[in-house]
């Protein structure tokens, strides 16, 4: 026995080191590309953006002559008269789009497509997925044409003129309506797919039990379906809040922030990277973005907590390497 222990001790030294290396390097090889990309394009940018937000860097100062200015950019944001408006715009845009489309319409379409014959449901779901896979420029042009002034606009030509409404270009006339519609028709598909697969995975027994109990369709939705899909509902709500808050591609293409449709993320983008005057205020824009980044991180962490991260993660059932 003592001899055994001695022998074990012998093979422990170098073996353990080798073993350790293999255990450390094996997974590292798998993880390396992803890790490097995350470091370069997530971690570094977060640090950079916070750093830049503390400087006066702009196309006027260039990359050489800038200076640290502490929290002055944040002070400027709070004093800027536009901040209040843009903040209100952002909240308005997120809340209305989310409730009407990303959750509301998504749920309606999901419920409808799961209660009609399968092929019909599938067709409509595909149609609703179309906007998401359409190039954004084409998609926005389509809406521009729907809203365009007479004689070109579809809305004017086929609906409003016959009703006797005076034609106009409806994007400037009703900018928020169209910002919300364009984003909403894309946003709805995400929730729709998740909700409909959640509804379809409700055990049939519940549905049949509800039928046996004599539930009407409405009662079935209210007392069976909605309670059973409350997790997907919550997930879509939080996830989509975050993505609406920070995405601006379609607003950029539709109004470019004109007609008072500037939202926070677009404001940051305009100030820092893309504006008519070529005066890029990287410091100020970075401060605007930093605020969103902080909101994003906080929400993402809360969201992770809420959705019980630990339960999603199974432990590997192989320990060898």
């Amino acid at each position: 026995m003592s001899e055994d222990i001695a022998r074990m001790g012998q093979c422990k030294g170098p073996n353990r080191l080798l073993d350790h290396l293999r255990r450390a390097w094996g997974p590292f090889l798998f993880m390396a590309p992803a890790t490097i990309l995350v470091l370069i394009f997530f971690l570094a940018p977060v640090i950079i953006i916070i750093g830049i937000s503390l400087t006066n860097m702009s196309s006027a100062t260039g990359f050489k002559n800038w200076a640290w200015i502490g929290l002055q950019n944040y002070g400027k944001i709070f004093r800027n008269p536009k901040s209040g408006t843009i903040f209100r715009n952002t909240v308005f845009y997120v809340l209305v789009t989310l409730s009407l489309f990303n959750v509301g319409m998504a749920l309606v379409v999901a419920l409808l497509t799961t209660h009609v014959p399968r092929r019909g449901g599938f067709l409509f779901r595909s149609l609703w997925l179309l906007p998401r896979i359409t190039p954004s420029v084409v998609y926005i042009m389509m809406w521009n044409y729907i809203a365009a002034d007479a004689p070109y606009g579809i809305l004017n030509r086929h609906l409003l003129t016959p009703l006797g409404v005076k034609p106009t270009n409806w994007v400037p006339a009703q900018p928020w309506a169209f910002v919300i519609l364009t984003n909403g028709f894309i946003g709805a598909s995400f929730g729709m797919i998740i909700f409909s697969s959640a509804i379809e995975s409700i055990p049939r027994d519940y549905m049949i039990a509800a039928l046996v109990d004599g539930c009407s369709l409405w009662q079935r939705i209210r007392y069976v379906i909605l309670p059973m899909i409350r997790w997907p509902l919550l997930f879509v709500t939080t996830y989509q809040t975050l993505s609406l808050l920070t995405s601006f591609e379609y607003i950029l293409l539709l109004t470019d922030g004109q007609f008072n449709t500037e939202v926070w993320s677009l404001w940051a983008y305009h100030r820092a990277l893309n504006n008519y005057w070529g005066n890029f205020q990287w410091g100020f824009g970075a401060a605007l973005a930093t605020i969103l980044v902080i909101v994003g991180i906080v929400m993402a962490v809360v969201y992770m907590r809420y959705f019980q991260f630990t339960e999603l993660v199974q432990e590997p059932r192989i320990e060898a390497l």
Binding site: D4, R317, A320
Partner: peptide
């Protein structure tokens, strides 16, 4: 060899195979 023992030794014909 899929799992590693937390303690103890496994031998194949006298040879320790834990690792």
């Amino acid at each position: 060899g899929i799992y590693r023992p937390t303690e103890g030794v496994i031998r194949f014909g006298g040879r320790v195979v834990n690792r």
